[in-house]
Design a protein around this nucleic acid. Sequence first.
RNA 1: CGGGGUGUAGCUCAGCCUGGCAGAGCGCUUGGUUUGGGACCAAGAGGCCCACAGUUCAAAUCUGUGCACCCCGACCA
Length: 566
Amino acid sequence: MRMTRLMLRTLREAPADADLPSHQLLLRAGLITPLAAGLYCFTPVGWRVIQRIEAIIRDEMDATGAQEIHLPALQPIELWEQTGRDEKMGQTLFRLSDRKERGFALGPTHEEAVSYLAARNIQSYRDLPVTLYQIQTKFRDETRPRGGLVRLREFTMKDAYSFDADWKTLDQSYALAFDAYGRIFARAGVPVIPVEADSGAIGGRDSQEFIFITPNGEDEILLCPNCGYAANAEKAEFTKPPAIAARPAPIEKVSTPGQKTIADLAAFLRIDPRQTAKAVFYRVDGKPVFVAIRGDLDVNEVKLTNALTAREVEPMDEAMVRASGLVPGSASPVGLSGMRIVADPSVVEAANLAAGANEPDFHYLNVNHGRDWNADLVAEIALARAGDACAHCGTALETRRGMEMGHVFKLGTMYSEAMGVHYLDEAGERHPVVMGCYGIGVERMLAASIEANHDENGIIWPAQLAPYEAHIVALNFEQVAVSEAVNALEREAAAAGMSLLVDDRPDSAGVKFKDADLLGMPVRLTVSPRSLERGGVELRQRRSGEIEIVPLESTLHRVRALLAGL
RNA sequence: CGGGGUGUAGCUCAGCCUGGCAGAGCGCUUGGUUUGGGACCAAGAGGCCCACAGUUCAAAUCUGUGCACCCCGACCA
């Protein structure tokens, strides 16, 4: 492709509203153009990269025996009502209606649709196992799109779904997908680590995320430097610091003027925060819930949501706090009525805790669960933090930020039961199919690859993502010797199925070199009177900056050899 | 949805406080000189100053209300 024909506009400066390096470079290199929040147009060069990513995904998915399909993005709302997810997805689901006022939704994911398809094509154990996948547009009315291509409202997802006769063979299907993911991300130049994750709105049992560790990520990951345990903060297990042992003593009310936070209270009473009970209030699906946890710990809202099998958990607003008769800063589970009390085991097992007295400026000492108050539900709801002990080996956990690149779930039978995906076994008995699902965000992968592969001058494409295999910078293109050399390279590349980007613009050398660095092709070939005089073409590797002069005849051969090694 | 920020040329931004002709650099067009790291000269094109309402003789500027976009938190690939 010649740049004089290519629709591409590079920018010297990054638009002011771009923060992430990937977002800035995508805009500066002219790969995308914003249309609205969370919506981007892809230019010819940008789209080529998307297609390269999709090609890698297809290659690796096909290699596992998965079969590509295509499902509609536009779906009748009844499909979502069948699994109850029209409710569960809430505002995230884009809804619309047709001319006859029939309700539709734009698919944010495709478990329902694929189950519909599977139910009509899978009948016998002989049809199993099977894994289906598609690369398709998803629509999510995100509360906050962000980071350029990191979080979009319309995006492309590779979503795969496995169908098995039982959990044992699901494990095999899951392992196949898991291994394929490792290869896909490696080929795209995105280093990832698998971490344990919560399964969220998709549901199911085991689930793991492939996380690209980057300070620009949205997720918090806890890592054990010793045993390698890795989990999303919302899921992470840890060993809590032990409670301070004590024999139950009589409850006692004390004056604590102005002491509202745990830190204040502990300092005022000269006790360890572990000897206090913390009260946090939540609005759970519209109802007030009182949550008690030991003072040195924090509540993990995802764990809380799961423990309550709730749809929505949010901090209680002030109006509800007041209406509930709670005294912020001195709230107490003792004598509390009118709302559910959820407690972390830490606060149930500890003795003689300091807790609020539900009266401003007063706290109780020696509060004991089972004697002074009772929880309606005791569940592990503590949030793991940096420095907490690894549940497996006791080493202090570390935290990192990360970007979720892919997510794999063992769904089990929840969708197959709701959608009627059954098979008959050898004995003629009917069973729900056991499902798994596996997703990758295509645009996010592009963003992550740039995050992982760039320098101050621009993008450095991994060989398999590069929109063109080499970037020819032609200087003095009007000179016959130069244009003939370029023509020869183009003819040879076409015959060999290689793609070249040829800068045949009349601009100055500096402009062309800057653009070549910005656009980031792994190999730059400079063809100029000077290079020809020196014996051919100047070949420069984008990542290393290494330069060599190669004879014209062997240039593409050399390029191929280099790309194979990248 | 809560908190913060920003809306002026394709991009980066001045101008706004203290109301009075719409600005600069880059980019774009034309002509010329250049051609190994964002060259130079000359001449141009390009604006509903986010929208609406108000105050005023007069509004990019002051007031109000919306809207859009970005960033931080609750959701997800």
